[in-house]
Design a protein around this nucleic acid. Sequence first.
RNA 1: GGGGUCGUAGUUCAGUUUGGUUAGAACGCCUGCCUGUCACGCAGGAGGCCGCGAGUUCGAGUCUCGUCGACCCCGCCA
Length: 612
Amino acid sequence: MKKAKDNIYETSLRTHTCGQLEESDIGSTVTLCGWVDGHRDLGGLLFIDLRDRWGKTQAAFDPAAVSPEVMESARSVRYEFSIRVTGVVRGRPEGMKKGAGTGLIEIQAETMEILNISETPPFMVEDDTTASEELRLKYRYLDLRRPLLKNKIELRHRAAMAIRSYLDSKGFVEIETPLLIRSTPEGARDFVVPSRQHKGKFFALPQSPQLFKQILMVSGFDRYFQLARCLRDEDLRADRQPEHTQIDIEMSYVNMEDIFGLVEGMMSDLFKKILDEEISIPFERYTYQEVMDRYGIDKPDIRFGLEITELSDILGKSGFKVFSEAAAGGGVIRGINFKGGAAFSRKRIDELTEIAKSAGARGLAYIAMTDDGIKSPIAKFISDDEIKGALAKAGTEKGDILLIVADKWKTVCDSLGMVRKELGRTIQGSSVRKWAFLWVYEFPLFEYNPDLGRFDAMHNIVTSPHKDDMPNLGLGFESKSAVDDPGHPWANIRANQYDLVLNGMEIASGGIRIHDRKIQELVLSVLGIDRERAEKMFGFLLKALEYGAPPHGGIAPGFDRITALMTGSDSIREVIAFPKTTAAQSLMDGSPAEIDPNQLEELGIEIIKRKN
RNA sequence: GGGGUCGUAGUUCAGUUUGGUUAGAACGCCUGCCUGUCACGCAGGAGGCCGCGAGUUCGAGUCUCGUCGACCCCGCCA
């Protein structure tokens, strides 16, 4: 029998887990606790499978070996009863062995005890469940008993441990930042918490610890990290929850290279430790301009090729007005070649056209190279040489189709980017790379917002401008260009900002920050935040920058998205123990919910009922 | 805010196209039988506000409108 002190799993109620015993334990007397995973009553012999977090072990009840009372009790158990069984470990008879480990042995039961009965569960606790997600969320505690989901939560834990240990080894300090902070006018809508002691005033829950981590740099913690909860009151998606976890990182005295190196090291360490996968580093790098030109999107899935080809030079002067007008108006003509696409049905082409249109394109032209020659509705408008030139440049061969969009640069990128994404869906097979990481950097600092008639921060308001573009910051104030002119100085400032993309998902974003109060104020004023308002909202950060703030920068990998990818999950809900629905409700605890009128009274809050 | 898919025994679904007897199946549940099962087997049984509310109709699971909920997408979101 194993010595108790070797067995960390032993408690007062059990000696071992349900995943622990093996052939070397044969002969030991053991006590297991677990849920009933199955019970097979053969009339005489009775088998019960016990399940806990660690595995499954079969207990055998023989009427010849146990008392009638125990036998009767064992016959009464049902799925998900919590029970405790004591008996002797024995090898299973030949031909009755299942797999390895606990499948080679069983407990010859001597006694058993029902610790707690269970209602008939609303769905079976098994990996290949058919239960709807709605039901699984309502009974999340049962869902989490499923080994598959449990394993994902455990992997998440091990990933967190690996990350903490990696960053610790590099001299990082984990520091908790406040959850009750003041609302700052960045990006997303805040969750808000009323103050009882200051009626009429509110805390906001942090969208990220952004300003606090910068202040920690000013405080001298030159390497900070935190597995930080971030809260945003925005609409949900498969990859978005109102509360998510970031591996929040900030460092002093760094440039982009330092951050890239750190994250590459961290990710390869993580994938090696948790998945035993070798990730090749450094990751590929693309500027924003380059990635948009080649893939039409700032977070491309580059597990497959399908690059966009520039065709303006060839088709720009063609007789097809859509093309020539786009070219003359400063737009571009670009295409994607798809292998074997000449066989696309009319319906398939219509689908792709709809996708392109949904991204703003007015249509989707195509040239198919079939066995019977060129098939294209635009062939009559453009010359044979132009067709040949376009096909040659795009690498279109017999059996392929070249899909073309002509429009403004951004519209062409967006629409071909979405068409490419759709096409990519169909070619994800064994030939594609497993883990396609890439960095995207030099995003524009500002983006013109037509609704507001001014510029918005494309990333966040604390990102520093590229030093070569710094003069544009001042020039913008005097510029005679219209604000929506792509040539406006503010539209042409690159930011020291970067994203990390994995398999088409943005998994991290960061930047080198502004550490000079004057520049920060300039950026704020471009965004239409005047001195007074800046002082009110950001005064504490601006003030901190005045006291020798060091140059600093950081990044924030999204922990939920990373673990979702690592576990092959379609949704980050699969790696969050207690997620919300797409309508931001928790079906298990029924939140959000009304609160007691007394609580409202105490907070000085009155609910106004709207009519409609 | 907008678009799409879905909602029928405890569960997953069929039935809705073309309105018409008593709304089916599988798993689960209950009872009995069964001494090496592990998707145990065999026999029998119970179980339905067809999401909810209006409307059309002699008659609605089926048609219409509204509403609630889940999921996916657009907007939105560092």
